[in-house]
């Protein structure tokens, strides 16, 4: 593999990991923690470090929904897909977010300033229906609340 500055940096990042040591997901987490996503270049580096096939590493990285292969947005809006939120109108919230922001789940706005992520229930169901703006719970939200919030977020992201 061709060594570039990027691959050398990733190599250093994952140097502590060993084959057969339950390290693959840890390595992927560490790379994502550093870059906000798992860049393509990392697959080969991690594969070599852990003596695994590159396809195996890629297959693993794409299996898990919290690992991403594209750069994250500056600000992430997580939409909770859980049952308590659903019962209290999360479908309305989603419709509004997608139509005001003009993006779907797992997409970023063109300038990467804002992105939507489909999240799993974390059990803060007293605030259903809710979204998390950069990890901070916002709810309960009516559709009208969501329109206002989404318009603000959109303005900020211009």
């Amino acid at each position: 593999m061709l060594e570039t500055e990027a691959t050398l940096e990733i190599q250093q990042l994952v140097a502590e990991f060993r084959p057969g040591n339950a390290d693959l997901l840890r390595a992927l987490h560490k790379v994502q923690h550093r870059y906000g996503y798992v860049p393509k270049e990392a697959m080969g580096v991690i594969a070599r470090q852990l003596r695994l096939g590159e396809a195996h590493v890629y297959g693993t990285a794409t299996f898990y929904s919290e690992l991403r292969l594209t750069p994250p947005p500056e600000k992430r809006v997580d939409w909770c897909s859980g049952p308590a939120c659903r019962l209290k109108g999360s479908t309305h919230v989603r419709k509004v977010l997608e139509s005001v922001l003009g993006i779907g789940m797992e997409e970023n706005t063109e300038n990467d300033k804002l992105g939507l992520h489909l999240a799993q229930c974390n059990g803060t169901c007293d605030f259903a229906p809710q979204i998390w703006v950069d990890g901070k719970v916002v709810g309960p939200l009516t559709a009208a609340d969501t329109v206002k919030l989404a318009r603000e977020l959109k303005d900020e992201a211009k």
């Binding site: 084959p19 057969g20 339950a22 390290d23 693959l24 997901l25 840890r26 992927l28 987490h29 852990l50 695994l52 195996h56 297959g59 693993t60 299996f63 898990y64 929904s65 919290e66 690992l67 799993q120």
Partner: peptide
């Protein structure tokens, strides 16, 4: 060791969990 998953429901199933620990997809 505290070991962090990465978002997969079937990893709560014990053989999926074990596969996930074992450097693979959590199948």
């Amino acid at each position: 060791t505290v070991w962090k998953g990465a978002g997969s429901y079937v990893c709560g199933e014990e053989s999926g969990l074990l596969a996930s620990l074992d450097d693979a997809r959590g199948m």
